[in-house]
């Protein structure tokens, strides 16, 4: 895939905010001393009076955003997922979630592709934390096209939204004619009959790669992109599970509480199906390049291929 364009979704986040600035005058961007890393610097440059740097104080930033939202603003708070969802959990729950305020949480540097910084900064728990908050929408874009579309969709949606972006450049896979993004609507990317791979974020392109390899082995895999973990597109997951009878979930997140758990919640209640969850297997990450880490933890195309093949054969 050497000729495929690659862009980190955090870049898409910053670019989308800057592009939307003109159109949405109530849009504000808040940072906690990481505007350079969260890529909101482009917004800051274009709309300096609408960018609020709160310093290294994420909990306060969250409350500031809550107060701004009560006055009709649409604040995006930006930080690493570790802080935006982890350190901030209770502030997000009580100051944003409980009053259902119109605050968007732009969480960058999610998952192990943070890379060299290591486990302290690799947040594999944020999807689990955020999806337990009543009324919270949780979105994990798979590439640049989807990330930019998700930002504008979040602006137009009234209520709290958690958006998860990555540090590492990922292949652009959605630059096709007629692409549309709708919150809560999964995307069937490849039809198959033997097994369903439900993926999110960086694992979507990896799942497509895995499906190619599985096809060479005579295994016909269906691939679904679930960009919205909550609310989950239950209909799409159920229809596919009914067709294939086997479901693999793939995410750059703990297998506890993330996409895999969300899919299992639906299937166990409505269509008991055997599920294999690919993700971080209840372990912390470590330092290394993003590529080396996704390979080690089986989240790349080869890893998803091997695990899915064993699951189907088993």
């Amino acid at each position: 895939m050497a000729d495929v364009k690659k862009i980190a979704t955090r870049e898409s986040y910053g670019n989308a905010l800057a592009e939307c600035g003109e159109k949405y005058p109530n849009l504000l961007v808040l940072d906690a001393d990481l505007a350079g890393a969260t890529k909101t610097g482009v917004f800051k440059k274009a709309f300096p009076e609408r960018h609020i740097d709160c310093g290294i104080a994420e909990c306060n930033m969250t409350g500031i955003a809550a107060g701004l939202a009560t006055c009709g603003k649409i604040p995006f708070i930006s930080s690493f997922a570790m802080f935006a969802a982890g350190r901030n959990f209770e502030q997000v729950r009580n100051s944003i979630g409980y009053p259902h305020l119109n605050v968007k949480i732009g969480a960058t540097h999610a998952g192990i592709t943070v890379g060299e910084d290591g486990a302290t900064h690799q947040c594999n728990e944020d999807i689990a934390l955020m999806r337990t908050i009543p009324g919270m929408t949780v979105i994990v874009p798979s590439d640049d096209v989807e990330a930019r579309a998700a930002v504008e969709a979040a602006i137009n949606y009234v209520g709290p939204v958690y958006l998860r972006f990555g540090r590492a450049a990922v292949p652009v896979i959605n630059d096709r004619e007629g692409y549309q993004f709708e919150i809560g609507k999964g995307v069937l990317l490849r039809e198959g009959k033997d097994v369903t791979i439900v993926a999110t974020g960086i694992c979507v392109s990896a799942a497509l790669e895995a499906a190619e390899k599985l096809a060479a082995d005579g295994i016909d895999a269906e691939v679904i992109n679930i960009h919205t973990i909550k609310p989950l597109d239950e209909e799409l997951v159920l229809a596919s599970a009914k067709k294939t009878g086997r479901v693999v979930t793939a995410e750059e997140h703990s297998v506890i509480g993330g996409l895999g758990s969300a899919v299992c919640d639906v299937l166990s209640a409505k269509l008991p199906t055997k599920v294999c969850k690919i993700g971080m297997q209840d372990v912390f990450g470590e330092s290394g390049t993003a590529a080396a880490l996704v390979e080690k933890y089986g989240l790349d195309g080869s890893g998803i291929y091997e695990t899915t093949k064993a699951f189907v054969k088993g």
Binding site: G67, A69, T70, Q91
Partner: peptide, 13 residues
């Protein structure tokens, strides 16, 4: 948590 929200309201003003 309340003082942060109050400061956000004041900033909006």
């Amino acid at each position: 948590q309340g003082l942060s929200a109050a400061a956000g309201m004041a900033l909006a003003g």
